[in-house]
Amino acid sequence: MSILAWNCRGLCNPTAIRVLADLVCSKRPKVIFLMETFVDRRKMEGIRVQIGYDNVFTVGAVGHRGGLAFLWMNTVVLEITGYSTNHIDTKLALDIDKPQFRFTGYYGFPERHRRREAWNMLRSLAAQSSLPWVTMGDYNDLLHQFDKRGRLPHPDWLLTGFRETVEDCGLHEFLFEGHKFTWEHSRGIENMVEEKLDRIFTTESWLTIFDGARATSALCPYSDHLPIILTPETLERRSNRKRFCFDNVWLREEKCREIVTQSWERTMGLDVFTRIEYCGNDI
Results as ranks from 00 to 15, higher is better:
residue 162 F to Q: 00
residue 226 L to C: 03
residue 218 A to W: 09
residue 234 T to F: 00
residue 193 V to N: 00
residue 236 E to W: 10
residue 214 R to S: 14
residue 170 G to A: 09
residue 184 E to V: 03
residue 166 V to R: 00
residue 189 I to Y: 13
residue 168 D to N: 11
residue 146 F to T: 07
residue 136 M to D: 04
residue 139 Y to F: 15
residue 256 C to Q: 07
residue 160 T to I: 15
residue 152 L to A: 15
residue 141 D to W: 10
residue 248 N to I: 01
residue 145 Q to C: 09
residue 141 D to P: 05
residue 245 C to N: 04
residue 132 P to I: 07
residue 248 N to C: 07
residue 234 T to Y: 08
residue 211 D to F: 00
residue 206 W to H: 07
residue 181 F to N: 02
residue 191 N to D: 15
residue 150 G to C: 04
residue 183 W to I: 00
residue 224 D to W: 10
residue 173 E to H: 06
residue 237 R to E: 13
residue 224 D to H: 09
residue 223 S to F: 01
residue 190 E to L: 04
residue 241 R to W: 02
residue 163 R to G: 10
residue 185 H to W: 14
residue 149 R to K: 14
residue 257 R to H: 11
residue 155 P to E: 06
residue 165 T to F: 05
residue 187 R to V: 08
residue 123 R to S: 10
residue 248 N to H: 03
residue 144 H to Q: 10
residue 221 P to N: 09
residue 213 A to C: 08
residue 250 W to P: 04
residue 196 K to G: 03
residue 202 T to K: 04
residue 256 C to F: 14
residue 204 E to P: 02
residue 213 A to F: 07
residue 138 D to F: 04
residue 161 G to V: 15
residue 155 P to I: 13
residue 239 S to G: 11
residue 224 D to E: 11
residue 154 H to A: 12
residue 193 V to F: 01
residue 247 D to K: 04
residue 215 A to C: 08
residue 154 H to L: 02
residue 141 D to L: 14
residue 143 L to R: 08
residue 151 R to C: 12
residue 250 W to A: 00
residue 255 K to N: 12
residue 172 H to N: 14
residue 153 P to S: 13
residue 163 R to H: 05
residue 152 L to R: 14
residue 187 R to Q: 15
residue 250 W to D: 05
residue 186 S to C: 09
residue 228 I to K: 00
residue 192 M to W: 06
residue 254 E to R: 13
residue 182 T to F: 06
residue 192 M to K: 15
residue 219 L to V: 07
residue 194 E to S: 03
residue 204 E to C: 03
residue 173 E to F: 02
residue 236 E to M: 08
residue 161 G to Q: 04
residue 171 L to P: 03
residue 239 S to K: 15
residue 139 Y to P: 04
residue 153 P to K: 08
residue 215 A to N: 08
residue 217 S to G: 09
residue 210 F to I: 01
residue 175 L to R: 07
residue 166 V to Q: 02
residue 148 K to A: 08
residue 153 P to Q: 12
residue 136 M to Y: 00
residue 161 G to W: 10
residue 196 K to L: 03
residue 167 E to N: 11
residue 198 D to E: 14
residue 211 D to R: 12
residue 257 R to F: 08
residue 158 L to G: 01
residue 143 L to P: 03
residue 179 H to D: 07
residue 256 C to E: 01
residue 181 F to D: 05
residue 246 F to P: 02
residue 204 E to R: 09
residue 251 L to H: 04
residue 172 H to M: 14
residue 168 D to P: 08
residue 123 R to N: 12
residue 173 E to P: 09
residue 209 I to C: 04
residue 173 E to C: 10
residue 191 N to A: 11
residue 194 E to Y: 11
residue 172 H to A: 09
residue 251 L to Y: 09
residue 198 D to A: 09
residue 211 D to H: 13
residue 155 P to H: 09
residue 140 N to P: 13
residue 218 A to I: 15
residue 236 E to C: 05
residue 196 K to E: 06
residue 147 D to C: 05
residue 193 V to C: 03
residue 172 H to L: 14
residue 138 D to S: 10
residue 243 R to G: 13
residue 209 I to T: 12
residue 188 G to Y: 12
residue 152 L to I: 05
residue 191 N to M: 03
residue 223 S to G: 03
residue 169 C to L: 11
residue 176 F to I: 01
residue 206 W to I: 06
residue 158 L to W: 04
residue 229 I to L: 13
